[in-house]
Design a protein around this nucleic acid. Structure first.
Lengths: 339, 339
DNA sequence: ATATTGACCGAAATCGATTTCGGTCCATCC
DNA sequence: GGATGGACCGAAATCGATTTCGGTCAATAT
């Protein structure tokens, strides 16, 4: 049933029906009611494709899933997606997903999305210090919202969780517990969040008057195995750390395993703090102290922001940095030869 | 740039350009090459919306995420989605996602998707013994592929992982280890997989000549807390089980916790086997014995099947039941007073 | 030399909506 | 009673493609 047939059953012209359906002027309240009611009864709704063609808008935004091989590192990613979808749905948009196999081909995915799919907006995360995706989108004037900031620009909308606080508060917690030799295993350098972790960590050391030792800072991908490897390097140092701040819970779990392998007890001989409150955290031994991250809510907020952006709001008004909360469990044990 | 302008730059008519672009007859190879090359250069591609309107196909399928609150129970769901998306993308389709907040409103989501969104096909999981979604889709002749079977019909395409084998092989494993009093915590009754778990379990008992005791079969949602609760009930029995087969790894982890709470040692005093090979499994103490489930691959296969279905292949040719493999770790310890 | 064939091209209809713009009709005012 | 205005409606253009169908032109056959 198309609008023509539908109009015919009502004895009205298509234009009147369309106007009634779209809440335009020029239709008497009585007629409008009649049309709305009939549409309900015959379960008629205008063909979205035709409407999109005429309106010249795709009513579609894309959610880009990067590096799928690491997706399990982000267990709430799906919830984030659901949050995004619900908010978009409410706004009359549909969400399509796009996946980028690797960092190299990622920009191509974006280009293809823009040029061939005609989408109205984009959502993505894992922002990088120098992020060519952001540069590209800004240049081509495509609305988007990211999960995370970037040094490439500060003139776009984002939701971010403050990793500076993770680095600083994590390190400060260990200082309070009497540690002096505190290491940092941060996420990969090219990611923006890595930068913040590093800076926050330095800040805490500085505030406590502890000299920064760059041999205590190593990088690891957000995976258990990589975390373990990085921790092993730290523990083999002549003067190994008594505490390790980790940029992600998986890194922290790997670190705990590496610590146990050397005969030391995680959370007792060597303290560990993670980040992102991965559900695993409360199952491992000792339970992992970490920082909260409401990814689910972030997704919803990102979608809302994109909606606002699409209706003309400026980027600068759409930037939020959320404060993570320390979740104290058991892995950040006191320094043994404490003060 | 639309096809009209593009055709003008080439000095050709729009129809010729369209034919060249779509690989139709009636265009000389030379002309076709010229068009293709120019399209590449000017990065012209036909507007998908207009094309869809004309072709009367949405080129869109929906992936339904049910009960998002439980999504973490399925950590590979996102990989499944990525698998689906990649296969669909290769076939020229876009994947939109839809989420159903609750079981009650789920059918409405489906109805809305069909009547208002004009999608070409659907993908979903968590099939139920009596599944009105399947009945509805069959009745309305909408192509779809599910993850899981149903008693509602057997005339539709699906990928399933054989839970009968989970129930039987899990139970049989414990029998081999000398257990005689083996319990089953199955997934919620209304889910189809629950039925198979139960039947497989019974089959193993029967084969070993052990009487079926229904007090040893309890239900639990796919969550740690529910698993713990169910296990507590079993352990409080006058003659408690010495082994528990669980329908899901989360249930198994909860069961292990409940066992430990009673002072018993999981995997020693009471054996536990899970299902679905959740990554948590190798981290918990003792490491969980479970069954494999390649959800990622399943997603890809489901998408391929939907593509085949859309191009006319019959449902009966598109039904696959995959065999899960037992992954032996430590939680299925031998019966203490074993033989 | 003419008819026939086949390759190739282009005008126009079509998909299903939205929107502009002009027209009808009734009520009101002078 | 006729002019004016406002409320309401409908014909037709439009969005950007695809596809049908008829037409042109050169090559070939007779």
């Amino acid at each position: 049933m198309n609008i023509q047939e539908f109009a015919a059953t009502l004895g009205l012209s298509v234009s009147t029906v369309s106007k009634a359906l779209n809440g335009r002027e020029d239709v008497s309240p009585a007629t409008r009611q009649r049309v709305l009611k009939a549409a309900e009864q015959h379960s008629f709704s205008p063909d979205p494709t035709a409407r999109r063609l005429r309106r010249q808008s795709s009513d579609t935004v894309a959610f880009v899933i990067s590096s799928p091989q690491l997706s399990f590192a982000h267990p709430f990613f799906l919830d984030m997606l659901v949050g995004v979808n619900d908010a978009m749905d409410a706004g009359g948009y549909q969400v399509i997903i796009a996946s980028a196999r690797s960092v190299e081909t990622e920009l191509d995915v974006f280009k293809r999305l823009i040029s061939k799919q005609r989408i109205d907006g984009l959502l993505f995360g894992r922002t990088r210090r120098h992020d060519e995706r952001i540069a590209y989108l800004l240049e081509h004037d495509v609305p988007f919202v990211t999960f995370g900031r970037s040094q490439t620009s500060d003139d776009y909308p984002y939701v971010d969780i403050d990793r500076f606080v993770v680095g600083r508060a994590g390190c400060a917690r260990f200082i309070t517990l009497g540690h002096r030799r505190i290491a940092l295993i941060h996420t990969p350098e090219y990611l923006m969040l890595s930068h913040f972790e590093h800076e926050g960590y330095k800040e805490a050391l500085h505030a406590a008057g502890i000299a920064y030792d760059e041999t205590l800072c190593v990088e690891a991908a957000m995976a258990e195995e990589d975390g373990a490897r990085a921790a092993r390097r730290l523990l083999e140092l002549p003067d190994p750390p008594t505490a390790i701040v980790c940029g992600h819970d998986f890194i922290a779990m790997g670190a705990m395993r590496a610590i146990a392998e050397t005969g030391r007890t995680p959370g007792l001989d060597v303290g560990v703090i993670g980040a992102d409150n991965h559900p695993f955290g409360s199952y491992v031994q000792p339970a992992l102290t970490t920082f909260s991250a409401d990814t689910q809510h972030a997704g919803k907020r990102m979608a809302e922001m994109l909606l606002e952006r699409l209706s003309g709001k400026s980027s600068r008004e759409l930037q939020e940095v959320w404060l993570p909360q320390l979740i104290v469990r058991a892995s950040d044990g006191p320094h043994r030869s404490g003060m």
